[in-house]
Design a protein around this nucleic acid. Structure first.
Lengths: 118, 118
DNA sequence: TCCATATTTCAATATCACTTGAGGTGTTGA
DNA sequence: TCAACACCTCAAGTGATATTGAAATATGGA
């Protein structure tokens, strides 16, 4: 992954409606949800939900599948995982506090032994 | 952390110049770097570097300290850790693949047995 | 075929972000 | 005090993105 791809995915996440959509879809798991359900769940008009869903889809964060009349969307976490890996490992040198934060731990204050250098 | 704060930090990261600045500053560790050095390192004019640094600073991703003529910037990873935690734990329910991706592992496909081919 | 449902596309508008260059503030040393 | 330096702020131009409502497309059933 390069910085350009990473910023594209980060940009897709940097919007409250889209973050809500992602959370909702992760909660639905492999069952997914139709565009209409998603819009209702996040309080967005249908055209607005469609706009944000296509944004997420382009970033690879959701997949879509037509099912009769409805289009079912599902969260796809591979792209998010790749971006997190890029951020933590490539941009931030695998900083241990970031890794433990991802795992649900606190972000502890930095305790540096400065004589050892950075 | 709420979605509004998270999207603010994500928005700050969703820009290539700023991602480059963050990477550069993480590499410098506690030594930090002056605005001039940073601008030169990422190939940005001084006003542009200043603009992006203030953006990162507002998001809490860098701190600044005046040192004589120069302003020294340092990466501050606490805000990033909090956002990663919000993303992985709150939005994505602590998904194990995301946690392992942050730790540097692959983002494994959901299918365990791949010998069946595609 | 016709109609209702589900979703997307389009156009118009508003808002926000990025870049550039000019000019301003603050600091240092002659 | 003056000049050189480091950095920031401002305004203008440009482009991207968000929102809304209306219209268009696709699907399934009467």
């Amino acid at each position: 992954m390069d910085d350009g791809q990473a910023t594209a995915v980060l940009g897709a996440l940097a919007q409250e409606t889209r973050l809500q959509i992602l959370r909702f879809l992760v909660g639905r798991g492999s069952k997914g949800a139709s565009a209409g359900e998603i819009g209702a769940a996040v309080g967005a008009a249908s055209s607005r939900a469609s706009f944000h869903l296509s944004s997420l889809s382009q970033a690879g964060l959701v997949s879509s599948e037509r099912k009769s009349r409805c289009v079912i969307y599902r969260a796809e976490l591979d792209a998010l995982g790749a971006v997190l890996k890029h951020l933590v490992q490539d941009c931030c040198r695998g900083d241990g506090r970031l890794v433990s934060a991802c795992a649900g731990g606190q972000v502890p204050p930095r305790r540096t032994f400065s004589f050892l250098g950075d």
